[in-house]
Nucleic acid binder design. Structure first.
Lengths: 192, 192, 192, 192
DNA sequence: CATGAATGAGTATTCATTCAT
DNA sequence: TATGAATGAATACTCATTCAT
């Protein structure tokens, strides 16, 4: 009984996904230059040559990886929160909850944040997600719930902290995360 | 007529320092794997071979660089602030002032922080400076000036933000830094 | 479909042996410092990188090469001759026959002798094979078949001549070897 | 009182001779490829640059060194012995005496022999001194004092042994040399 | 499709040579 | 002259990529 066309396709898809999944973590941890195909393939558990059946080159793989992390990060979540008919403070708390939960439960999420920010720092990608948060911050400042200050810088600060914990997650698996409240507090006025 | 012993010593010292100074920035920006000796030496303005007159290998140079950044970071400042007969809140404000000023004016400082934290994340160095800040935080929590929460995590958060801005400094020279108050606010209760 | 484990093992073994075989000759001819990996690999007919799939470094390869030549030279032959129930003179003639034949027919033998002696001169190896011959010489001197003189020095002289012809073999392929009798004569009294 | 022209010349001559003397030994021991200018100059006790005040290049120095060893080896002695109105056996004994004495007392002599033979093996020089000995051997064979056999090969054998002891001298300073008789015996029939 | 041995361009390191002092 | 720091071409070694099986 020969494998059906679909089964083949399926296997290909599986292997491809395996490579991507493992590579996201590997690249996030070691960076582009620090990642050797020989080590990566060992880590994935396949032969070096196999990677080249699915990706043209190391750069191609990295680009793909980055696309993934980009999507992950660019997540509709942030936009969906922004559009809800609730206070800015609520939006920020929901966002923080969502982020902390994702960082805790999903290694890929951490890796994506890490990769994305690495490229961000190198100025190689746009900064769209800063923008959305900026708007929420300005809203909150009008409400009086968000601390005073340049909205852009506050946005950067917030994302910076998220990045930090993402990176920590990659290196120390059992890392004790900050609580959602601590993250929110970066933006929100202390409630009295 | 041979060069005088002292003059030679002097020249060696100068070249060695030049290499270190430029390398701190270069390694901080590109990481170990991303740094090519050929590019580095070009950046320093010397021949490739010259580096090997002063350092055994790329790894040796990196280790030395790290020692330097370690000293820089382990700076007595933090400890000296800790010992002053002032409130914890004051200590935190002084520390923040000092850090923001240093980040702004001294590229080496940013690079050192960046390198140090990179290795910290990889768990390859001790975390002594967390400790000192932890103590100040606990003091502040007793005073009621520092926000509630696990002192260790707050300390990590604070240093994390410093790291973030250090890294930003390395990539974008004209980066608009947060203000000292924004940094302090990570730990201090909002004054009402 | 992956290559079978055995076939891979086989290929590795073959390549490894090819490298060793050619390297013995190359190092024996050019010495360690005079051997360039680029030239050696060209001589072997493989890429430079391939050598590093089998050996850690040039030094590692050289050490391995030397191990081989050591085994070749430490050959059981000498010991087996020594134990035969025949006169010392006979032993010496058999040894000489064996050596001259080996030098003539087996380039590896010449190379091994050359390498071994090079290191011997540098005092980097033991001199076990001198010892066995020394015993035979002393036997022969009692029999009256071997010339008078310090047994150790005679042994050295004998091996020195063997070395000489080994080296000559490496440089001039069609070299006219001395006859076995000429070699034996270094130790044996002229028969009248 | 300025140095006189002659004194200057003298100093130059002295330094030049020092370099040559030390280099002969160094090259003889390490070979051309194995000799590093940095090590050599350290061994001589001068700066690297100084060598280049006296010699154009490493190759130039080696060539000069070789000239010296050539002269040493090509020594008139051999020819002068050949021309004496004495038996071939006597000539061989005188030659052996002379060689053993020189090897024992003059490190430069050993080095010269070593260097000369190294190049000889590589076929890079003529073999004039073989010729002279060959003639003596043929004389001796007519006299009945020299063993039978191809004169050229016997000559090579004789010189080979001399080379061997020269090399040994270079590596082990207190080496126990063979006696002049042992050397002569390679060519001479045992006297009964 | 998968493998891993082989390749060779790229990178690290050495060493003969130069040159400012 | 003599020095030794600096140079860069030559050499050792690595690693992304290819290819025969």
């Amino acid at each position: 009984m020969p494998k059906s066309q679909e089964r083949c396709q399926e296997i290909r898809e599986e292997t491809r996904n395996l490579i991507i999944k493992k590579s996201v973590l590997y690249f996030a941890r070691h960076g582009f230059a620090g990642t050797k195909i020989s080590e990566l393939s060992k880590n994935i558990g396949i032969a070096q040559g196999t990677i080249y059946l699915y990706f043209e080159s190391k750069e191609d793989l990295y680009a793909e990886i980055f696309e993934i992390s980009d999507k992950y990060t660019r997540s509709e979540k942030l936009n969906s929160f922004a559009k809800l008919p609730i206070t800015a403070a609520m939006k920020i708390r929901m966002l923080s909850d969502y982020l902390i939960k994702s960082l805790k439960s999903d290694e890929m999420f951490s890796a994506s944040i890490a990769l994305y920010t690495q490229r961000l720092l190198e100025g190689e990608t746009d900064q769209s997600f800063y923008k959305t948060l900026e708007k929420i911050i300005k809203e909150g400042q009008k409400e009086g719930s968000v601390v005073a200050g340049n909205a852009r810088k506050l946005s950067e600060l917030y994302w910076g902290v998220v990045y930090l914990y993402a990176v920590k997650n990659l290196y120390t698996t059992d890392y004790a995360m900050i609580r959602s409240e601590d993250l929110s507090r970066i933006l929100l006025e202390d409630r009295k």
